[in-house]
Amino acid sequence: MAMTRLSADRVQRLARARAVLRAVETAEVKSQSLKEAPVARPSAEHPVVAVPTVSVIDPQRGREFFSEVVPPQLRQRGIVAITGSTTVLLAALGEVMDADARNPRWAALLGMPEIGMAAAAEQGIDLERLAVVPEVGTQGAAIIAAALDGIDIVVCGPQASVAQLQQRKITARVRRHQRLLLSTYPWQNADLTLRVIRQRWWGTEQGHGWLRHAEAEIARSGRGAFAQPVHGSVDLLGRAAG
C-alpha cells in the first residue's frame, strides 16, 4: 500500500489520515487501530491478509509518536529492538525516559561510540539522566547485565551486541528487574521490533535551505499480545519548517 505522503497543509493531512483510519477500521480485514488495545493473535480463521497503513502524524503531538507505536505497558518494561534509524531510537528513548513525569527515569547508552549527543538533546532527552559507555570491550554481556541491575533503561548499541545465548540470559534479567531494554540490533524474543524500512530527509534545495524534515516508514512486529504487525510512517522531527 502506498504511504500517506506529507503535504504542506496540516489540516488536510490530518483529515486524510483520519479517513484512512476510518476506512481501515470499517474494512472487512481483521486489523487493529494503533490506539486500541492489542487484539487477539492472527489465527487460521482470521489471518492478517493485509497490513493497514496508518499515518500517525499529528502536529500537536510532535515527537510523541512512540506512544502511538508502542503500547503503554511496554513503555515501562520489556525489550524493544529498533533497527535502521538512530533518530527513531533517540526519540523513543526520550519518550520512555519521561513516560512518568513524577518518576523520571535514568538511561545508560552502551556501545554506541558514534551517537550524536547533540541530536539526543534535540530529541528531548534529559542529558542529566544519561550515562554513556561508548566502548564495552569484550565484556559486553557483563556490562549490560550490570547496567540492568540499577538503571531503568538500557540501550544496547552495535558495539555492545551479544550472542543469542547471552541474549536469553539478559532477557531473563530484564524481566526479573522489570527494566526496559532498547536494542539497536535484532533481539531474539524481543517484545516488539520496530524496523525502519525507509526514511527520507529533506529540506535542502540545491544549495539553499537545510535538512529539516524527516519521515520514516516503520514496520512493527512483536510477540504475544503485540503480534499484530503494524506499518506506518511517522514524522521524525515533528517541527514546523523554519
Binding site: 544519561l130 554513556v132 559507555v133 566502548e135 570491550g137 557483563a142 556490562i143
Partner: peptide
Amino acid sequence: LQAMLGPGEVLQP
C-alpha cells in the same frame, strides 16, 4: 561499571 571498565570509560554528556 567504572570498576569493570575503568573510571574514564563511563561518561556523561
